[in-house]
Design a binder for these strands. Structure first.
Lengths: 135, 135
DNA sequence: CCGTATCCAACAAGATACTG
DNA sequence: CAGTATCTTGTTGGATACGG
């Protein structure tokens, strides 16, 4: 495995201003990679889901946070909000094409964490044992 | 492009407990997808960098945050810390193989945001114009 | 040069209660 | 059912100053 080649290749794909102090992608990243963004988007991948469905599926999220993140995702065109005028009203959320394209990246990331949890945990324990009892 | 097939395929790769309230990957995700995690890792892709180099390259980060994130990344075995006993001491940081494998995912994500900034901004403006002047 | 310590401001997030 | 409003707390992050 040629390290230098591969590294430069991956790095080359980075947008130019990524490290700039006021790169416009920073607030976006913050929203999407915030505590719940990736999970909400991942939960929408299989298909449209109702508010209560999301609330049930995503463990530990509050109504407030769910509502807040959804609003933001709708605002950036990643999610669509569909109201059916029944009684009581039903609201479903669905990924837009743009959102689905992002979802692929995020699911890959979630998948990576899932696949490497053991190794990460092992490293942590090794580190905590040999060195400082920090945290 | 077959949408339904692809969506299910991507979703299938998600680890089982991703939505669980106390999935062990959550704190990890928080660290890596925190405000600076992705940027630091991306900055390390081309090769080892010194502390001051990172501080210069990543616009807007404070010493405190850089130090804090680096410590955490070292702890999880994503980054190595190498001290050269010169005077004054030089410390360089380098991605581990595990860290490099994560870096690929993160660079892809950063790349996605870079590539779609225009579309996201357009959606936001469209939304803000037609509807509520919220934020 | 490479950090750590301290203090402080800002924001994210939870709990709870309430509305259409 | 699908949220909003309000209040409170915890965490994140920046500024500054200092130490090895």
């Amino acid at each position: 495995m040629r390290v230098s080649e591969q590294s430069e290749d991956v790095f080359a794909r980075l947008p130019a201003g990524s490290f700039d102090k006021d790169c416009p992608t920073r607030p976006l990243m913050a929203q999407v990679t915030g505590r719940w963004g990736a999970l909400i988007i991942a939960a929408l991948v299989p298909g449209p889901v109702r508010f209560s469905g999301l609330h049930r599926q995503i463990g530990g999220i509050s109504q407030k946070m769910l509502s807040q993140y959804l609003k933001s995702l709708v605002r950036y065109g990643l999610v669509e909000r569909l109201v059916e005028p029944t009684v009581p009203p039903q609201v479903t959320y669905r990924l837009t094409p743009l959102g689905r394209s992002l979802a692929e990246q995020l699911c890959a990331l979630l998948g990576w964490f899932g696949a490497n949890t053991a190794e990460l945990e092992a490293a942590r324990q090794r580190h905590d044992a040999t060195d400082s009892p920090s945290r």
